[in-house]
């Protein structure tokens, strides 16, 4: 065997033909996932800017950053679960419940303790999702769909179906004030979380194991990945991050609102998919989710500013999700669609 450490890669000249490759030119296929959201972002900013100059004002930017805070964290909660090839439909309901619990507890327990308790609840919810789907082998979308309903029921029970108000100013400080000028703290938290999660995804064994499980679960197991532990921890993490999203939501709304975060479920999945994280697992990442969230937030705030009516907005957002899946899906996995 020749030792040849300097010449890294031997170009494939005469070897046997490669396995059936992807359709289309290589570079296009490779950069399409990351290219789509960036192009979409530029097109949207230019379009809304031309339609209404107010879209480009500092106020509008502040508004976008505020919306980004909650949605980015919520989408982040779902990202790792989608990366392992599952999906967590209970993130928005988990966020709602956390928002209500923090509002209920913060005056009695004090800020830090209330927040810690809420995060713990999030972890328990996520762990329950993970245990049911891994130990009982139930598809995660069914488990979390059921969990969504359970959590909604608990939210309404705790809040008696009405808004929960609180006195503490802590959440306002944590979410709405700005330690960094021009950047609301909630958004700062979102950015920090995205940064931390991106490092976890790419520069830790745990992160690599997540991609391995999503890329080929059996191969992951046979190459020494503790698949079940990875799955359980990913669901738990999802629950905790959803709880953070809920705290941000309540901080922004200044009350705990039953069903408050729920309508954002589709937006959060849209953000993940538009960012280029494949629903089939193993491809994408937290940084992509931030990009996707930006697209979704700009789309909805642009439509607000250009006075598109809310019903039309629903149609547009649904269409965007479908379009994003169409543009980013890996058709190699589905031999019959061609």
């Amino acid at each position: 065997m020749t030792q040849n450490p300097t010449k890294v890669v031997v170009p494939d000249v005469g070897g046997p033909p490669a396995a059936p490759g992807p359709a289309g030119p290589g570079w296009l296929g490779r950069y399409r996932n990351i290219g789509v959201p960036i192009v979409a972002l530029i097109v949207l900013v230019v379009y809304f800017g031309v339609q209404n100059a107010a879209f480009l004002s500092p106020d509008s930017a502040q508004n976008i950053l505020r919306q980004l805070a909650f949605l980015a964290v919520l989408a982040l909660a779902g990202t790792f679960v989608i990366l392992i090839g599952g999906i967590d439909l209970s993130v928005a309901a988990g966020a709602t419940l956390s928002g209500i619990l923090v509002a209920t507890w913060i005056d009695d327990l004090g800020g830090p303790l209330a927040i810690a308790a809420v995060l713990l609840c999030g972890a328990v919810v996520g762990l329950a999702n993970g245990l049911i789907s891994t130990l009982l082998r139930v598809p995660s979308f069914l488990v979390t769909l059921g969990m969504m309903s359970v959590l909604n029921g608990i939210s309404n029970t705790v809040s008696n179906g009405g808004p929960v108000s609180y006195q503490s100013g802590l959440l306002n400080t944590l979410v709405n004030e700005s330690w960094v000028p021009g950047l609301p703290n909630g958004t700062l938290i979102a950015f920090v979380l995205v940064a931390v999660f991106t490092v976890v995804a790419f520069a830790t064994s745990y992160g690599r194991h997540i991609y391995a499980v999503g890329g080929n679960e059996r191969a992951a197991r046979l190459s020494g990945v503790r698949v079940r532990a990875v799955k359980l921890s990913v669901f738990t993490l999802s629950g905790v991050v959803a709880a953070i999203a809920g705290i941000i939501f309540t901080g922004q709304a200044s009350t705990g609102v039953p069903l408050g975060a729920d309508p954002s479920l589709l937006n959060s999945i849209a953000a993940i998919v538009v960012g280029g994280t494949a629903l089939s697992g193993g491809v994408g990442g937290p940084h992509r989710t931030l990009l996707g969230t930006l697209v979704i937030v700009i789309l909805s705030s642009g439509m607000d500013i250009t006075s598109v009516d809310p019903y039309t907005q629903l149609i547009v957002k649904g269409a965007v999700v479908i379009a994003a899946v169409v543009l980013t899906i890996d058709r190699r996995r589905y031999g019959t669609i061609k």
Binding site: N4, T6, V10, D12
Partner: peptide, 9 residues
């Protein structure tokens, strides 16, 4: 990759 002469772009 060099030692095993893995051919890849």
């Amino acid at each position: 990759a060099g030692r095993l002469r893995i051919k890849t772009p």
